[in-house]
Design a protein around this nucleic acid. Structure first.
Lengths: 228, 228
DNA sequence: AAGTCCAACCAAAACAAGATTGGTTCAGGA
DNA sequence: TCCTGAACCAATCTTGTTTTGGTTGGACTT
């Protein structure tokens, strides 16, 4: 077991690698030579080199990706969110769960920050949605109500995340439920639920606003499930 | 000037093209044949075809792009959420409020969906963050812990929104607090708070996970305020 | 002269084939 | 038992070619 040339082979390779990384100056992006080159340069097998690299990666000192290479520093995040890519990986159920997770908190924040003019715009959306003559109109005012609530938080970042979520929702439903026929404008229990949300916001009832929004979205989710 | 074979050549080509588009069934994406093919098929010169296409494009019935082709319908809007634009409109306080709104709900979902391997990765993050020798290492493991929790929801959309939020956070703090000196690695009450979050997730305590995450983030917020 | 056609060219985008690269497996040998 | 080397895999990059809308200029017709 300890008959080899040194007692701590992996440790010596680790130090050797650390020395190399400290000495050799890497390119701008912090990329270091491919494993095959590096193992040859250090005179060790690729497997042993990988063990040492595993340690450094677990320490968070470098990150690796197949086809790209090995880089010093911490793994970079995407600098832009690709709506289409998100929609491709997601599905209607996931969108609904995400709405249920996030929109109640938006309503809570809105109950804290909403201005009177924002609340009156919500009331307008409620009235218009009641007057809607077909599903499309109703959906339009429903969407606008939810966005008005998000605007009322006066939190541009929260609003941005809401818009992203909404864009994904549209992309997902377009892709999967495009065959949905023009729904008749029948039962809209949602009227009372919408009222409850806006009422809670107007009364600065944060917990109530969140609860009302959650109840509403769970109703929507149940309708979705029933239709399938 | 009107000596040619017909008085309104461009108009006849337009109607001919309209007829073709109504009759021929296009592929899924609404793409129509390249101009060179289409002009040959309709027996008109490419220049004349392009004039007709210009009309249809000005009417908003189709859109074109070099290298891509000509498509029926309206030009698709950008599907990228611009992180930089969000960061420009936001600020550290807003980022913090948004984290407090969203991350507790992520923790709640994680308590429901987390796999044992995900939980063990959270434990690893806890251990490493305790062993951290400087602020940068600690921050790295802290970030990774929060992302591991988001991954544990097994909700790709929620994860995507979390990543967006995180990207904006980094952009905002880099832009505004770049002058922050290397903070010493002193008081980390956060250890116990992190433990409480992971414990709740492991015990499938959804409400507890959300509450622990909210408590933790409010602590972070208080530190931010104290420093200013 | 004015309009039309045709061919060529341009840059952006798509497409295709090959090479790299981290990750994994397995037979062979020390 | 452990390590090695080689092979294989899938994701990614690289490179070169093709396709596509947009543009220009000369030849031909009227």
């Amino acid at each position: 077991m300890l008959g080899s040339s040194d007692l701590h082979p992996e440790k010596s390779i680790l130090t050797q690698l650390r020395g190399f990384l400290a000495q050799a100056h890497l390119p701008e992006d912090g990329r270091l030579p491919p494993e095959r080159e590096l193992s040859a340069a250090l005179g060790v097998s690729r497997a042993e080199l990988r063990k040492a690299l595993d340690v450094l990666e677990s320490e968070g000192q470098l990150w690796r990706h197949v086809g790209k290479g090995t880089f010093m520093g911490s793994r970079p995040l995407d600098t832009f969110a690709d709506i289409e890519a998100l929609a491709r990986r997601s599905n209607p159920a996931e969108v609904m769960r995400t709405r249920i997770a996030i929109e109640p908190e938006i309503a809570r924040a809105a109950a804290f920050s909403a201005t009177p003019s924002a609340i009156s715009e919500m009331r307008l959306c409620l009235t218009r949605s009641r007057q809607a003559e077909n599903w499309r109109q109703y959906e339009g005012w429903d969407t606008r109500l939810h966005r008005t609530i998000a605007e009322a938080t006066q939190n541009s970042l929260l609003l941005g995340l809401f818009d992203t979520l909404n864009a994904v929702r549209r992309a997902v439903t377009w892709g999967r439920l495009r065959s949905a026929p023009l729904k008749p404008l029948t039962d809209h229990h949602s009227f009372a639920e919408h009222d409850a949300i806006v009422d809670a916001i107007e009364h600065r009832d944060m917990a109530g606003a969140a609860a009302a929004m959650r109840t509403h979205l769970q109703t929507v989710e149940r309708k979705l499930l029933d239709r399938q």
